[in-house]
């Protein structure tokens, strides 16, 4: 390390690194949020301004009606003049939360156990099993809608949140298992072997060594599972028929009818839909960051 001079109290390579990081962050922020900012800006405008060719990119007139209706609609009944879709929107967000949260928790519970033998145990038919699990997910859902519906009706489970949880779970589990086994593989084998020598059972090593070490992977996988089912529209459309189980993706699309479209309400619903997943990510991200170092120290 022969370099001794500094710029702004930093070595030149360090400074270059910082510039790269902050420059990159600005670009990423712009890329990710650019289109979304258009949504946010539109959500505060009265509808006629959206179609203004020369209108400003930012709201000149502020209009909060759509947000107010979506957020407080559940307090009112039809006589208030607030549209039906707005009155059931918050309820549908809760339904979406239940489904996505349920799928995330269950898929991690089931998936983290299932991924272990695929990553760590050698047995006949392992690759076959891996592709069997993934193979169930390769047929587009559209082609399976009718048989799914038939099955759900046959067992009398139509229009229920439990059904949405189970169906989404079965579609998301393969991804969760594949991901977790990949994360498990990146944990050094020596740690596990040491534990085995100390007399730990397979289940014991899984719970004491593997799971704590792959916490970042598990949390990201959980967020992934949450997001995949949060975004589901197709199953929610087919398998729900009343407000007790409509999810927010279904209700958001109900603002478009054969006769008219309430664009601002749809856009506001979109902006609101972003809040739960992003807040979850904020809450859980310290686990993504904790990483191998802290895990190994505890282990």
């Amino acid at each position: 390390m022969g370099i001794t001079y500094q710029i702004f109290g930093m070595r030149p390579d360090k400074l270059f690194n910082r510039l790269l990081v902050y420059g990159g962050s600005v670009v990423v922020l712009f890329y990710i949020l650019g289109p979304f900012l258009w949504l946010v800006s539109s959500s505060f405008q009265p509808e006629q301004n959206l179609l203004d060719r020369d209108g400003s990119l930012f709201p000149t007139e502020w209009d909060f009606t759509a947000y107010r209706e979506l957020l407080t609609g559940f307090l009112y009944d039809a006589s208030s003049g607030i549209p039906y879709q707005a009155r059931i929107f918050l309820r549908s967000m809760l339904n979406s939360l239940i489904v996505a949260g349920g799928v995330a928790v269950l898929s991690i519970l089931i998936g983290s156990v299932a991924a272990y033998p695929l990553a760590r145990m050698k047995f006949k038919g392992r690759n076959f099993l891996m592709f069997f699990i993934l193979g169930t997910r390769l047929i587009p859902a559209i082609a399976l809608a009718v048989p799914f519906y038939l099955m759900v009706k046959a067992v009398g489970m139509n229009d229920r949140l439990e059904t949405l949880i189970v169906i989404n779970l079965s579609f998301i589990l393969p991804y969760v298992i594949w991901l977790l086994q990949a994360y498990y593989r990146s944990i050094p084998m020596e740690l596990e072997e040491a534990a085995r020598i100390d007399g730990c059972s397979r289940l014991g090593t899984l719970f004491r060594i593997i799971l704590p070490l792959s916490l970042p992977g598990m949390v990201s996988t959980g967020i992934l599972a949450f997001l995949l089912s949060w975004g589901d529209f197709f199953f929610a459309l087919i398998l729900t028929q009343s407000q007790s189980s409509f999810t927010s993706t279904v209700v958001a699309s109900m603002f478009a009818t054969d006769v008219d479209v309430k664009y601002v309400s749809i856009i506001c619903a979109g902006v609101l839909s972003v809040i739960p997943p992003v807040s979850f990510a904020l809450i859980f991200q310290r686990y993504i960051m904790s990483g191998l170092l802290s895990g190994a120290a505890k282990g």
């Binding site: 967020i223 975004g231 958001a252 699309s253 478009a256 979109g270 839909s273 992003v278 904020l282």
Partner: peptide, 20 residues
């Protein structure tokens, strides 16, 4: 914050994405 905001594009419902 940036990590959490990263999820925004995926979290927007299909119908809204279409309009967007």
């Amino acid at each position: 914050m940036l990590r959490a905001l990263l999820l925004v594009p995926w979290a927007i419902p299909e119908v809204v994405n279409g309009i967007l």
